[in-house]
Amino acid sequence: MGEEILRVENLKTYFFTEAGVVKAVDGVSFSVYEGEPLGIVGETGSGKTVTSLSIMRIVPPPGKIISGRIIYRGEDLLEKSEDEMRKIRGKKIAIVFQDPNSSLDPLFTVESQLNEVIMAHLKVTKQEARNRALELLKMVRIPDPEARLKAYPHELSGGMRQRVAIARALANEPDILIADEPTTNLDVTIQAQIIELLKELQSKLKMTLIMITHDMGLVAETTKRVVVLYAGSVAEIAPTNEIFKSMRHPYTAALLKAVPRIDRRKELKPIPGSIPNLIDPPSGCRFHPRCPYVIQRCIEEVPELEFTDQRAVACHRWKELSLKGE
């Protein structure tokens, strides 16, 4: 394992809406180690995207980072000025969003969108930037890259657009690449292309990948460690090869039981109820209304995230439970 490159400590990001305060991220902590691909899994509303937006400090209003620390190489990103953050975004930490249709600007060509990112951080001429852009398109395996430089996003297919978005994120060889559901909107065979591309780039460029997804299959394939989020807080953190065999949080077990598998038929066990409302989340452990192992203590007391041997879990009963995924 490399050294710690990013540490999120007790991060709280709330959205101040008219309906009330949505506690989208409520006390999330985890570490990212250099070169080690990390997965962040959770369902809609678990806070996985807001966590990544918080790391980049691009939480849109009415959202605000309330408290916590985000330590990148020893420095707290939450204390940086906007000018300093600009030097970090795209240069040190870059992000690929879920939907390339909205993350690429429809009014600009691929070339100008790539040049913009390159020239924001490097003092280069337009010609040098263009060469770099060409190199990037080749790296993400876009066929006929010279012609594609002049293309507008609408002239490209979904898979190609996502490749351009990846090329743009990699333009300045960032330390950390956050990929937020990079394959969700794509067709199956195109998803496979993007997964393989990210895996290849990750090992070639030795960057640290943070893969944000709801797909346990993608986690198994692309990550070494995984953070499971539920309703804005961390349920469990564990090495990927352990979590599928011995999960410690009942939510992780329930999630695995609820997902059908391609390699065999199995008995599906849905999680009862639905994802809680984050304006008024359940008391105590947020998973307690849906948890089969709930006791009185779970309703009254918020479980702390307990760290033991490379793993962490936020459950009052983890020591006495022996959970199985399937």
Partner: peptide, 21 residues
């Protein structure tokens, strides 16, 4: 072969199709 399986120990033997539909 394109579908990721939730099993980190499974060997991945993927056939990646070139191009788009």
């Amino acid at each position: 072969s394109a579908i990721p399986v939730p099993d980190p120990e499974r060997k991945i033997n993927r056939i990646v199709l070139p191009g788009d539909v």
